[in-house]
Design a protein around this nucleic acid. Structure first.
Ligand SMILES: [Zn+2]
Ligand SMILES: [Zn+2]
Ligand SMILES: [Zn+2]
Ligand SMILES: [Zn+2]
Lengths: 144, 144
DNA sequence: GCTCCAATTGATACTCTGTCTCATGTGATC
DNA sequence: GATCACATGAGACAGAGTATCAATTGGAGC
């Protein structure tokens, strides 16, 4: 999800109504930098004096997730969070310092998983891969 | 976690008291086949007429997880679950039909992730990989 | 076996997340 | 502008997980 406008366009194309609350949530998401929880978005809305119901925010996030505008991630501490992202399958490297996430394209993972599945006799239908670490910007100087 | 006895032994070695509730939870876990949630263990305990407090079960699972006897996994539906497993780093292939999980050893993943980290300039400190699919036992006959 | 103390437990209360209901409001279409 | 299905918001609700604290108990030492 690059900008709120893009998200609104996607909503429209998918046949959803372009309501004020949905536009507002799209902007809150676009204003976020890294991963965020539903509770954080609710707090954001409150801070901006937007009177959006809590349920509406949950519903908007569900819708956005269904459209691939955001993706659910599970943080190491068990929290359910979201990251804004493009609607193609990929994974995230999440910085544990600043919270920002980097998209990872395939990089040979599909092949790797196909191989694993074949070895196990498992028909793999979905997977979840999340990397946690420290991003370049947060690395103290020369990373040695 | 191969058997309840093994778990008790590990608890002992780590300096924890071998209390009746902990032994009971160890047996409940050992009796489980695939992944399970805390709520399911509570239900198991109730079904067996064991009077173990809910909080105690949560605490026991925390302890077991800290000792590597069980591992937390996040199911696709967002539930927080556990699987009994060995205390070496590995991943799980979880059958969406029967719920059983297969342990996956490294299979070249460490190398793969090291490479990804290098390309991103990310110092990767931890990761989560979970595969979901259908296990051989649950595959309908010849898999096409 | 018995005593003693700190670790552990269980009941309960509590916070937080996410869902549901339903009366009210409002986009989009005409 | 009128219409109506879709969407919203308030509040109730069900569960997950944690906190508190008095009562219990494992195990060490005798
Ligand atoms: Zn993404
Ligand atoms: Zn960072
Ligand atoms: Zn395992
Ligand atoms: Zn199976």
């Amino acid at each position: 999800m690059i900008g709120a406008a893009r998200a609104v366009e996607t909503l429209d194309r998918a046949g959803y109504r372009l309501t004020a609350p949905r536009r507002a949530v799209a902007e809150l998401v676009a204003a976020r930098n890294g991963h965020f929880t539903a509770a954080e978005l609710v707090a954001d809305a409150r801070a901006r004096r937007l009177s959006i119901g809590r349920a509406t925010i949950f519903r908007a996030l569900d819708t956005f997730a269904a459209l691939g505008l955001v993706e659910r991630v599970d943080l190491p501490d068990g929290d359910h969070a979201y990251v804004a992202c493009d609607p193609v399958h990929h994974h995230h490297a999440i910085c544990t310092v600043c919270g920002r996430s980097l998209d990872i394209e395939d990089m040979g993972l599909a092949e790797f998983l196909g191989d694993v599945g074949r070895r196990l006799g498992f028909r793999i239908t979905s997977h979840r891969l999340e990397l946690f670490g420290v991003c370049p910007a947060c690395s103290p100087a020369a990373p040695r």
